[in-house]
Design a protein around this nucleic acid. Structure first.
Lengths: 209, 209
DNA sequence: GTATGTGAAGTTATTCACAGCG
DNA sequence: CGCTGTGAATAACTTCACATAC
């Protein structure tokens, strides 16, 4: 059932998910491809095509059941199960992530944060306590953890990544360095907030409408 | 100068920019499309094609001059000039952004933060002082500001965006809400960190290598 | 009437391969 | 000889349009 899914398609699936979850909070029970498309700023055919890659989730003349589609998307994205996540580095960004409430409904549990600085170790942030980097391997071994968020300073990023990979991490969300070297099967997702601003300056400068 | 530049292309240009800036800190002066491609995980032809859309920046047999290419990319992305940016909402995420050092070299100056909470007003974060939302329009009028970062709670997002647009903001980086309504010519860039994690769970679950 | 799912068409993006320059 | 820039070929994505189901 797995084949070649466009990268952009997976990003859209996440966008659909976010909008669908918003619709549940509004009590909306059914949604059409046109309706969903309008929110995400893509065509309705695109929405149907994206979903049709994985199955037939809608009913002609009716649309999609919101709850049902959320569940199907979870099946596709791999989030029917919950995922434990660790945060490496306990700076301001980690602080923000650990206090971010929306992870839970998207099936992510930030179970631990780590830092090399002894003064930060033991501090509570949100519901989690900062632990020593020395205990990284032990904590990962004691919990099923396959994802990590990296927020350490750039020159510490590769070492941290190596330890995470050695401890069995399969996916890294990387805020730290321009690039991480990882073995095949370990996925890295780069986040660059300045890049997001540059997208805007590009559009504004070339006065796209 | 404007045409139809792929969205994905602009994202790659930002990635090239980041890597090039990293190379300057290493003292590297020249770089080939192959070298650059390796970092970004695209093909060398893709790099050359992306750049060729805008001009001829390299020299056959030699490659690209790092400093020169940075400047050309700035020209394309609109960051030869610096951009003032305001942050709306002074929660943990704003705190992280205001302390994030890399914005400056990418040509962004976070000149102000705003919050409705009187207890936060007056607090310093990094180099900037939190100001009252009441003063939003005055501050924007007193400075050339065309970009904003939105980190308020979801139900306050649209109102805040409306005020920003009315005050002349042309681009919004939106961490706050699933969707913002804006008039044509005002660009919104959605950021959804849970979505980034979902990209990883998708890859890990469907064991892509 | 309304909305899905999907071949087929259309469009856009990526890769190939090589001429030509340093 | 190495590396760029680019026409041509390929592959990938998106949109159209309609048969089908509710």
């Amino acid at each position: 059932m797995d084949s070649h899914i466009p990268d952009a398609c997976v990003r859209r699936l996440s966008a659909y998910m976010r909008q669908l979850q918003h619709l549940t909070t509004l009590g909306v029970e059914r949604v059409s491809s046109h309706h969903l498309a309008e929110y995400i700023k893509v065509g309705a055919a695109q929405v149907r095509r994206d979903l049709a890659l994985f199955g037939q989730f809608g009913r002609p003349g009716v649309g999609y059941k919101v709850e049902g589609l959320i569940d199907e998307l979870r099946g596709i994205l791999g989030t029917r199960r919950r995922w434990n996540v660790v945060v490496v580095g306990a700076g301001p960004l980690s602080n923000a992530l650990l206090r971010y409430p929306a992870f839970s409904s998207r099936r992510f549990d930030l179970i631990a944060a780590f830092d090399v600085n002894p003064r930060k170790v033991g501090r509570r942030i949100g519901k989690t306590v900062v632990q020593s980097m020395d205990d990284l391997e032990a904590v990962l071994a004691a919990n099923q953890v396959h994802l990590a968020i990296l927020t350490v300073p750039p020159d510490a990023a590769q070492d941290a990544a190596d330890r995470l990979v050695a401890a069995g991490i399969r996916g890294i969300l990387n805020f730290a360095a321009p690039r991480l070297e990882t073995p095949p099967g370990v996925h890295v997702n780069q986040v660059d907030i300045a890049a997001h601003l540059e997208q805007l300056t590009f559009l504004v400068t070339n006065n796209h409408c």
